[in-house]
Amino acid sequence: MIKSLITRFQQGYRTIGYPDPGAPEPVMPARFRGRPVFDSSKCPADCRQCVDACPTQAITIADGKIKLDLGRCLFCDDCAQACPEHAITHSRDYRLTVRQASDLIVNSDQEIKLAAALDGKLRKLFGRSLQLRQVSAGGCNGCESDVNVLTTIGWDLSRFGISFVASPRHADGLLITGPVTENMKQALKIAYDALPDPKIVIAVGACALSGGPYINHSEVNNGAANIVPVDLFIPGCPPHPMTILDGLLRLLGKIEAGKS
């Protein structure tokens, strides 16, 4: 018992201050690959190196402008390494979450339309207490692990009223990871149907947004939105815990809309 208390004292208080007022902004690792930044003005005419290098066809070029589908992006850097003009870099910006699938497609010269808060009744219902059921539907345990980490003392997700529950019957929403394999399609539908109304769905990671590395495999369904309606899209492979936390807090209106 004494040893437990001593160890407790040594381990200290370790929950991050963010997003409390006055708390330091989170610092991402120097090599963190956040939102990709494209400088289309550097692109030579007819160059398609980045398009060809991308493993998930996330990049398209139209009218000399690069467009990126954040839902498909694995944040793998294959495009940047292929670019002869160094026109592609990764910012350290971890804020990537959007509410509409169409907002995942970003132009090189355009800001991301970050997720808006739930409105009206839903925000009133879930804003101070959101119980989620997590369903892994073909996820590799990367997204699952970094969702799980939010429940540890370092992040303490429950201080925002968000927690993960053991049954869809106890839940306000689903948090889905994985491309939705054929073999999980039915279980996912059953879990969704078991949620009481009103309910929300959060898709986390490239697989759940688009199929990720498994896009167009006959064994998968190219993401959660092809099976159930999705209210929040959190890109990444896997998303950093900060990205997931930022997305959840925006949805609940706990980060001011003006703070993009």
């Binding site: 892994s136 539907a137 073909g138 996820g139 994985g178 491309p179 394999t181 054929e182 073999n183 999980m184 279980a187 498994y214 495999h217 006959s218 064994e219 998968v220």
Partner: peptide, 11 residues
């Protein structure tokens, strides 16, 4: 098991 099958070997 098999719920997570994504067809990697085939691909």
């Amino acid at each position: 098991l098999g719920y997570q099958h994504r067809g990697v070997e085939r691909a």
